[in-house]
Amino acid sequence: MTRLGYQIPNFTYPGVSADQLYPTIVAQAVEAEASGFDTVLVMDHFYQLPLLGTPDQEMIECYTLLSALAQHTKRVRLSSLVTGNTYRNPTLLAKTVTALDLVSGGRAQLGIGAGWYEFEHQSLGYEFGTFTDRFQKLEEALQIILGMLRSEKPTLDGKWYTVHEALNVPAPLSKIPVMIGGGGEKKTLRMVAQYADESNIICGPGEIGRKLDALAAHCETYGRDPADITVTLQTSACIAPTHDEAVAELDAYFQRNPAAEPRRGTTIVGDPDEVAGAYEALKVAGLDGFTVNAPANGHVPGRVSLLGETLAKVVPSH
């Protein structure tokens, strides 16, 4: 289960040419594994997101990339944070995640959400639909995908998807954990309680307790112990050996990437002691760990290692 996950959300790095892009990504995954992260995650998007950059910046299809990263890592789980359900038929997604599990030696994880980036859908021809449509699709998809991952040959005649005794051969090497992303208290956290092993929430520090209470209430409805669901908080950080270096690297990131400027106030920045202190302050009862990205300086050699070593003291492995 994810207690300390490193997410790679961007692939636009200063001074890194196209032929060095993949090696730079691999280096981050290798540093993450060696320094204490238990999961490496990438976004499932085809265009860069508004608060990270512009649509014309580099974005790599996530499952191809995760399968490649599996060949350079040995221990970390590999996942999307999170798969947009609207981009693939659920039977294809089940087969894709199973393939990732096989090529990684049993390290696949399914992160999934309803999908939200309307511009990307419209530009590339994916049906977006209404908020209600997307959540109905997600729930039907979960019934199909979970059944296939468990070799149950699911059948469903739904509003959005129809399958008949859907086969998934070969089966995954072991049980693939399912993480549902998002903090919606009525729909998303209800589906976490009903279907998932993990929850990744995005919210301000003052909202964490309310999200956990909402999840606990849904767990009671479905007869689940909330302690059986691993809950992580999505965060961003910029760490360096000194405070001044960290601030300078964050400033340089926003200077070359003005679209990301709104993220300044939510990015944890500083030296190892400052970063550790900030994450200690975010720890609340019921929160099991963090997913963290470092878009400002994750490409700088040694920064992911420093981040992992720092956070591993805040979130001890189990």
Score class of each variant (00 low, 15 high):
Glu61Ala: 08
Ala260Met: 10
Thr98Ser: 14
Thr221Gly: 10
Met179Pro: 01
Ser17Gln: 13
Ser17Val: 07
Thr266Pro: 01
Met43Pro: 01
Val247Ser: 10
Thr155Met: 08
Gly5Met: 12
Ala276His: 14
Ser305Ile: 00
Thr267His: 15
Leu69Tyr: 08
Ile144Asp: 11
Phe46Ala: 04
Asp19Ser: 12
Gly125Ile: 04
Val26Tyr: 12
Ala276Val: 05
Gln7Met: 10
Phe46Gly: 00
Pro205Asp: 12
Leu124Cys: 06
Lys187Ile: 08
Ser67Trp: 05
Asp197Thr: 00
Pro241Val: 07
Val163Phe: 14
Ile8Glu: 14
Ser104Trp: 09
Val30Ser: 10
Pro205Gln: 08
Pro272Glu: 15
Gly84Cys: 11
Val275Gln: 14
Leu287Cys: 09
Val76Leu: 03
Tyr222Ser: 09
Pro272Leu: 11
Leu93Tyr: 14
Ala248Thr: 06
Glu185Pro: 01
Asp244Ser: 12
Glu139Phe: 09
Val315Leu: 09
Val97Ser: 07
Met179Asp: 01
Phe119Trp: 12
Ile202Gln: 13
Ser317Leu: 07
Val269His: 15
Asp19Met: 02
Arg263Trp: 13
Gly129Arg: 07
Leu51Ser: 03
Val300Gly: 10
Gly298Asn: 10
Asp271Ile: 01
Val16Leu: 12
Val247Met: 10
Leu110Glu: 06
Asn168Leu: 07
Leu311Ala: 08
Gly206Arg: 07
Leu142Asp: 09
Ala29Asp: 09
Arg190Ser: 06
Ser317Cys: 04
His318Gly: 09
Leu138Ile: 02
Asp38Phe: 01
Leu142Thr: 00
Arg264Tyr: 15
Phe11Val: 03
Leu81Gly: 03
His72Met: 00
Tyr47Lys: 00
Ser104Arg: 04
Leu102Gly: 09
Val103Trp: 15
Glu118Val: 05
Arg3Ile: 01
Val169Ala: 11
Pro226Met: 13
Pro9Gly: 02
Ala70Gly: 13
Lys283Trp: 11
Tyr47Asn: 00
Gly147Cys: 08
Arg190Ala: 08
Ala108Leu: 07
Val42Ala: 03
His72Lys: 06
Met43Ser: 05
Gly298Glu: 14
Val314Thr: 09
Gln71Ala: 13
Gln57Phe: 01
Gln109Arg: 13
Glu198Trp: 05
Ala68Leu: 03
Asp19Phe: 06
Gly289His: 05
Lys186Val: 01
Gly36Tyr: 04
Leu233Lys: 03
Gly206Ile: 00
Leu149Glu: 07
Val300Ile: 15
Val26Cys: 09
Gln194Gly: 01
Glu33Ser: 04
Ala34Phe: 04
Gly5Asn: 12
Gly106Ile: 04
Ile268Lys: 09
Thr91Asp: 12
Met1Gln: 11
Thr24Gln: 13
Thr12Ile: 00
Ser17Met: 08
Thr83Pro: 02
Gly158Cys: 04
Asp251Phe: 11
His72Thr: 03
Ala214Gln: 08
Thr2Pro: 05
Val40Gly: 10
Ser174Gly: 07
Asn200Cys: 09
Ser317Phe: 10
Tyr22Ser: 02
Ala227Phe: 11
Leu69Thr: 04
Lys211Gln: 10
Leu52Gln: 05
Asp44Thr: 00
Gln234Lys: 02
Gln255Tyr: 15
Cys219Asp: 11
His243Leu: 07
Met148Asn: 05
Gly286Arg: 13
Tyr22Asp: 02
Leu21Thr: 06
Gly298Ser: 12
